[in-house]
């Protein structure tokens, strides 16, 4: 494993921990999109089915369990926790899952590495992950005051994606036969979605002002 991949995984882990800690300690999920969190739970469930069929490494299995566990915990907090759920504003978080899930199913059936149940699910999870952040970005745009932790969560997720791209470039040159068009293109699309957010994040950081996205 190269340093970019490891750094990417660690930022991903940090983003999830920031979000879980925010929800757990201040008992509020204000500004957090349940839709995005549910999409991530679907992404991890469909992609990590291979923990039952292939063993890659202890690290790999451990991280998969962490991402599965954390995404389900966050969804549980927002839906079921008796205090946290009160801070969830479902009138702002209106993005419809189905508009993202259905096209990803169709795309996965058409474009996959092999037309098998596992490979179609794998492709589906990559396509869905690429767009899963959209409800969160829409919610951020609607929220007048983005709190620091929610901003940091999205920022860390964006950094994780960017590091994965560097990791693919590195692997392309250092490993033989490392070509994964589906992963690369959907990963690139996913990272581009953060570009706009990054721009405003750095602006607010530079001028030391509260992060606010233009409507």
């Amino acid at each position: 494993m190269n340093i970019f991949r490891l750094a990417g995984d660690m930022t991903h882990l940090a983003s999830v921990l920031v979000l879980l800690l925010k929800i757990h300690t201040i008992k509020s999920c204000a500004g957090v999109s349940l839709k995005t969190q549910e999409l991530y739970a679907i992404v991890f469930t469909t992609r990590y089915l291979d923990i039952f069929t292939d063993f890659i490494s202890l690290y790999n299995t451990f991280m998969k369990l962490i991402f599965l566990g954390s995404s389900y915990s966050i969804v549980w907090y927002i839906r079921r926790h008796k205090i946290v759920r009160r801070s969830y504003d479902k009138n702002q978080d209106t993005f419809r899952h189905v508009f993202l899930i259905l096209p990803c199913i169709v795309l996965a059936l058409l474009i996959n590495e092999k037309l098998t149940f596992k490979e179609v699910l794998w492709a589906f999870s990559l396509y869905l992950e690429a767009v899963a952040i959209l409800p969160q970005l829409v919610l951020l745009q609607r929220t007048k005051n983005i709190d620091n932790l929610t901003g940091q969560y999205v920022f860390l997720l964006g950094v994780y994606r960017a590091l994965y791209i560097v990791n693919w470039i590195y692997r392309y040159f250092t490993e033989t036969h490392f070509v994964h068009w589906i992963t690369w293109i959907s990963g690139l699309v996913q990272t581009l979605l953060y570009a706009d957010f990054f721009y405003y994040y750095f602006q607010s950081w530079k001028t030391n002002q509260k992060l606010q996205l233009p409507a």
């Binding site: 790999n60 490993e175 033989t176 490392f178």
Partner: peptide, 10 residues
Amino acid sequence: EEQGSGKDEL
């Protein structure tokens, strides 16, 4: 390091 597979990624 596993070669030729991106499926070792998360």
